[in-house]
């Protein structure tokens, strides 16, 4: 046997072995991707500023002032100006980020657990279980997501909690579909059969061989849904179904400032810019993640 070893191992054509591990490789690649790093930093800044809003905000976001309505940025210490009721825009944007980001992220998180879990089960078991789960999802798919979110939260009576429940329900079907597709693909690869052929119990095969290979696509898709979630949540608030005034929320602020677009266009655009920056950075980060997690490229 030793001769065989020598023959094969000595002229090893590969460079020195990289003992970096899967997540190590992903991290290495992310660190060397300036675009993703930049947007990641921006995203982190947005999240941190929302979390620390009470300490960062220069003014009380609820304090109105008739004389200071719709002032331009820089007026009397209002760095980003004031809104239609004379409240400080910067403070409201910072506080608004808390609600908006929560409404964007919590539903996606819940939907990833529920929808992703259902999808993996459907994909792995196949057959009747798959048909049952996926047909139910198809029913939800028949409605446009915006319409569905509006209908559900409208039927439940609006409010932050109901809005989040509505968004969760909206996100379950697409996540389930992505998880199911990814699992079915992996499920049909020989290495899963090979693992089954060792006689190992199904839960071990699922845990060690299937989950690791579907987690990537699911997480990437979920992270791209967060930006959709923020936009949908803003949309709900815009329609008066999500956050109720005077709570600060980007969507709600955008709605309220709509009429002021001719008076103070810069201020009116600000909530929109916040939404745009958040979703763009989320998309860029999830794109970078997708590239970094593809080990084979």
């Amino acid at each position: 046997m030793s001769t065989t070893i020598d023959k094969v191992a000595t002229p090893a054509p590969m460079a020195a072995p990289r003992q970096r591990g899967y997540w190590g490789t992903v991290g290495y690649r992310l660190r060397h991707d300036p675009v993703t790093l930049c947007f990641g930093a921006l995203l982190l800044a947005i999240i941190l500023s929302a979390v620390f809003a009470p300490w960062l905000a220069p003014f009380d976001p609820y304090r109105e002032s008739i004389i200071r309505r719709l002032k331009a940025p820089g007026y009397m210490g209002h760095m980003l100006g004031t809104d239609e009721l004379g409240r400080d825009m910067l403070s409201r944007l910072l506080h608004g980020g808390r609600l908006t980001l929560t409404m964007g992220m919590v539903p996606v998180l819940l939907a990833t657990l529920i929808g992703g879990g259902l999808g993996v089960v459907a994909g792995f078991l196949g057959g009747v279980a798959n048909a049952a789960i996926m047909r139910v999802m198809d029913v939800f798919y028949a409605f446009p997501s915006v319409l569905l979110a509006v209908a559900i939260s409208g039927a439940m009576g609006g409010g932050v909690l109901n809005g989040m429940i509505a968004l969760t329900l909206v996100f379950i079907p697409p996540l389930c579909r992505v998880a199911e597709t990814a699992t079915t693909q992996v499920r049909n690869l020989d290495f899963v059969d090979a693992a089954r052929a060792t006689g190992a119990p199904l839960r071990l095969v699922l845990w060690h061989h299937v989950l690791g290979n579907v987690l990537g696509p699911i997480l990437i898709y979920a992270s791209s849904l967060i930006s959709v979630g923020i936009i949908l949540a803003s949309g709900l608030s815009f329609l008066g179904l999500g956050v109720k005034p005077p709570e600060p929320d980007w969507g709600l602020m955008l709605n309220a400032l709509r009429q002021a677009i001719y008076v103070s266009p810069l201020v009116a655009a600000m909530p929109g810019i916040a939404i745009f920056l958040t979703s763009v950075s989320l998309n860029m980060v999830s794109d970078g993640l997708r590239a970094a997690m593809d080990v084979r490229s």
Binding site: L189, F191, A194, A195, A200, P201, H208, G212
Partner: peptide, 19 residues
């Protein structure tokens, strides 16, 4: 395709005995 792409190859070999 008969090896798990996310597992170092010695892990794939050890999987059966560990199971």
């Amino acid at each position: 395709s008969s090896l798990n792409p996310r597992m170092p190859v010695q892990g794939s070999v050890a999987f059966g005995p560990m199971a």
